[in-house]
Amino acid sequence: MQALTRTMSTLTPKMPEPAKPAVFPLVIGTLKKWLLALQEYSILLADTAMKALSPPIYGGDILEQMDLIGVGSLPIILLTGFFIGGVMVLNTAAQFQRFGSASVTGTVVAIGLVRELGPVIAGLLVTGRNGSAIASELGSMVVTEQVDAMRALGTDPVRKLVVPRVLAMLIVLPLLTAVADLVGLFGGFMVSYFQLAQTASQFWNTAIQALVLSDIFQGMIKPLVFALIISTIGCFYGLRTRGGTQGVGRSTISAVVVASISVIMLDFFLGKLLLYYFVTS
């Protein structure tokens, strides 16, 4: 009987183990990769903060980056800001006219620009122009061993490459945002003057009176946060570039995509937080 049972057991085909879904390890793997990247990014952020507050600081490199980011981005900020302001007036005025209150157009444009659109537009433009440039420049330096050469020469790449870019961005982006706000308002004024036949005093009075100090404050805190995000994400993806020129391309795309999404998401959360703070205080 025992022999029969043994024979049976050898003859009975084993049921194959149920195949594990392939999606699960993929999700876990991707999550792990994200978490690791987040950890590395946090380390870079902390390292940058520590080195930005202690000597040596490369003043010349900061000025060079301010020129590259600030002066270099000025033409696109001027152009885009002007047309964004104009198109805002075009769209809002049409709605307000239906209710006979076209005179408040300036109010809406001023608040919308200073609180939201100015910082976001400046942030996104600088991401596209300089976030990408930072990632590709540092990425090229990594793949051609220039970053290793810098370390071999006894210079800390975070101090020499990351800190100047972050500090320059922190100084310049709020200024670019202020310029975007101003030319945006001017663009809005031009449309309301020539198309809606509003007088200059009508537009500027309503626009300026609508703004309170907290709006300016909100409009200036956002670019500071965006500057930190854009520059550190650009540096982070640039410095972790692997795999030659293709790798540089991949890093640049990742930097622009992640920084753009972060700017838009943070705009929402910061907007909510700052509104809550200023309404309750």
Binding site: T144, E145, Q146, D148, M150, A152, L153, T155
Partner: peptide, 23 residues
């Protein structure tokens, strides 16, 4: 640590494969 290593590397010379000059 990394700071000590930076100091150490200032005392050696390294010639990289393609030169690795700062372009």
């Amino acid at each position: 640590n990394e700071v000590e290593l930076l100091d150490f590397r200032r005392r050696i010379g390294f010639v990289f494969q393609e030169g690795a000059l700062f372009d």
